[in-house]
Each structure stands twice: as structure tokens, then as C-alpha cells.
Write a protein that binds this DNA or RNA. Structure first.
Lengths: 177, 177
DNA sequence: GCTCTTAGGTGGTCTGACCACACAATTCCC
DNA sequence: GGGAATTGTGTGGTCAGACCACCTAAGAGC
């Protein structure tokens, strides 16, 4: 027994180091990252392991690979994630109804944040939802919304939003503790 | 120009086929999936490519691998996803405030769905949020909530929820079109 | 100048070889 | 016989090398 803790797998190490490299070198969306062979050299990790890391990041939509050219950092418009996860969790695609509800919920929440910011008597502004989401200034919310909206289609669906808003207004919250 | 469309990469094909296999064989969480070598054989895909697919699925939190034992289907409590994506999108972790807001938003939305179902004058029920999320019967909502709650910690945070609910009640929705 | 060829670099894939580990069957000793 | 040590087999983890398909740019030829 050496007492040495098992080192993290090369695969995870590669992901971490690639992330670190991106951060250190201040790489932006669209920038090229080093080739697999160079990464393998620089990180002293076999190319297979580097590839496993890159494939995983690719599946997450974080990078994009172009055969014959290289690997590029990608903007966060995650195409793969929701369908992929959906396919695993549900037996197939998530119900369209569910997706629309979740989208409306996020938008309702966005409006609630804006309302909280600007005080009482908040009126739904006229701007597009992209703008409202930006105004809410919550990156996590924005990104989740983007994923869902991408999947649901970005037609407004004001009806559903109004419906949920009306429902929300009926909620009597019990204070108790 | 042969006109032949480029076949999807073996890597993606492997993911698809593994998913298909899981579905066909009705594998549940905790079940073991075939070994890498067997998958390689059955799918006629090199072990490297199978591994790339498995690593990606592992990073997504969909499977779990245990050296010396095998690969197992995992319950969907995605540890990796949010931190990983967070690390890429934000420069580091998403703001705690943001995470708490999104969690509250999802819970507010859950209540709104329940309210819509049970008609007017809905009172926030006493049961735990797990139960309420289940009652809302929206798997997508449930799973997103699980991810966020896992990250935020599952302490109730009723204050934030009430705050957003109050804000939502102030929203005057403009009908126009 | 322009086109065509060529060389080099890149990702995509496969194979074979090890290692580290976990489990079960087997053997061995008492 | 029963328990402990050994071995065998299967698994994931990793690496190195070899091709292939593809893209780009530099060079050759006109």
C-alpha cells in the first residue's frame, strides 16, 4: 500500500488541462486550439486520451473539429445537449408540451427578475426575449433558455407564458416554519 | 464528386448505437452495459471509437465506469455537467446568486403548472419539492431542476421563491398583436 | 499571371500491446 | 472440511504506431 491516491484519469486530466490552456491563452470562440498531436506532446498524454477528452468536449458542444483543418473553440449554442440527454432520460424525445412549458417557465422567471429589479407594477416590455434575457443579467438563465429555445423553436408562444403567469398569480404562498 | 454524403463519424455512430442498445434491451439505471471490447465487436467499430463514445457519455454523467468491473448505466444526477459547462461559459463558476435564482424560477414554474392543473386559488402544498416536481409531471423540468438543485444545494430557499412569486404577481402582461 | 500538382499537417480510425484492478474459481494448507 | 492464499480471466486505462481522408498552401509548369 503506497497510500498514494489514485491520480485522476488521463482523460479527465486532459479536459482540465485543455480548459486551463484555453483560459491561460485567452482563447476566444472561433480560435483554433492546438492539434491533437501537439496536445499529446505538450501534456505528455497519449493521443488516444487526448482524443477522448476532445470528443467529450465536442459532444458538449464546446469545441468543433474540422477534419484536415483543426479543432476550434465554439460559441455556446449547444445543439447536441438537449436532444442527447432527452434521448436518454425520456424514451425518445421529450414531450413538446413539456419543452414549451419549461421554456415559458424560464421566460416567466426572466420577467420576474426584471420586475424585481425595476420595482412594482412591472409591465412586460416590448423588446424581444433575447434582449429581456440579457437584461435579466443571469448567464445561467440565459444559457439554459438558449438551449431550450433552440430545441423548442423560438416562436414567442405568448399564450403559454400568459397562462403560466395567470396561474402564478393564483398561488397563495404559505408561510410556515 | 461522388455525391455520397459523408457518413457520420464512428464516434457519433457508436453513441447512437449504444443508446439504441440501451433502449432495445430496456436497460435501467445501475444495469451493466457490454464491455468495451464486446461493443467494439458487436458494432464493428474499433475499441478506440467506442471508448471515445463512452468517455463522452461518462462526462455527460449518463454512464459510470468502474475499472476492473465494467460500465454501468447511471441515474440522472448529473454532477459533471453544470460545473463543466459553467467553467467554460463563465470564467469559473456561475454566480451563486444566479444559480439560486434559476432554481427558484424553476420552482415557481413548477407551482404555476400545479396551479394551472388544479384550477384557481392554488395554495402552495406542504409536500417537499421533490414531490411537487414529480406532481408537475414534466420530466424535462424535473431533470433541469435536479441539476440545478444539486449544484445549489437543496436547502429550500423559500425567501427567494416568495420574492420571485411576488415579482411575478406585479407583471402586467401586454396583449398586442 | 494562372492553373495544376505536390507535400505537409490535421482529424478519423483501427490494431495490438501492455498495465491496474476486481472478482471468482481454484488450489493449498491446516 | 474449512478457511486462506493463489491464480485466472475479464474489465477498464493507456499508449504507440500505422493507415486513411481531407484540407491548405507552397511550389512547379504553362
Amino acid at each position: 500500500m503506497t497510500g498514494s491516491t489514485r491520480p485522476p484519469s488521463k482523460f479527465l486530466a486532459a479536459i482540465a488541462q485543455i480548459q486551463e490552456m484555453i483560459k491561460t491563452d485567452r482563447l476566444q470562440s472561433g480560435d483554433k486550439i492546438p492539434s491533437e498531436r501537439e496536445l499529446s506532446d505538450r501534456l505528455s498524454i497519449g493521443r488516444s486520451s487526448v482524443r477522448e477528452a476532445l470528443r467529450a468536449l465536442e459532444l458538449l458542444g464546446l469545441i468543433e473539429t474540422r477534419r484536415g483543418e483543426g479543432t476550434y473553440l465554439r460559441d455556446f449554442n449547444n445543439h447536441q445537449l438537449v436532444p442527447l440527454i432527452g434521448a436518454f432520460i425520456f424514451d425518445g424525445d421529450p414531450s413538446k408540451e413539456d419543452v414549451r412549458d419549461v421554456k415559458a417557465i424560464l421566460e416567466l422567471g426572466c420577467l420576474a427578475i426584471l420586475s424585481r429589479k425595476s420595482g412594482a407594477d412591472f409591465t412586460r416590455p416590448e423588446s424581444s426575449f433575447e434582449q429581456q434575457i440579457e437584461a435579466a443579467d443571469n448567464k445561467l438563465l440565459r444559457n439554459i433558455w438558449k438551449i431550450i429555445a433552440d430545441y423548442a423553436g423560438s416562436e414567442p408562444d405568448n399564450e403559454r407564458l400568459k397562462e403560466l403567469l395567470a396561474a402564478a398569480k393564483q398561488i397563495q404562498y404559505l408561510k410556515h416554519q
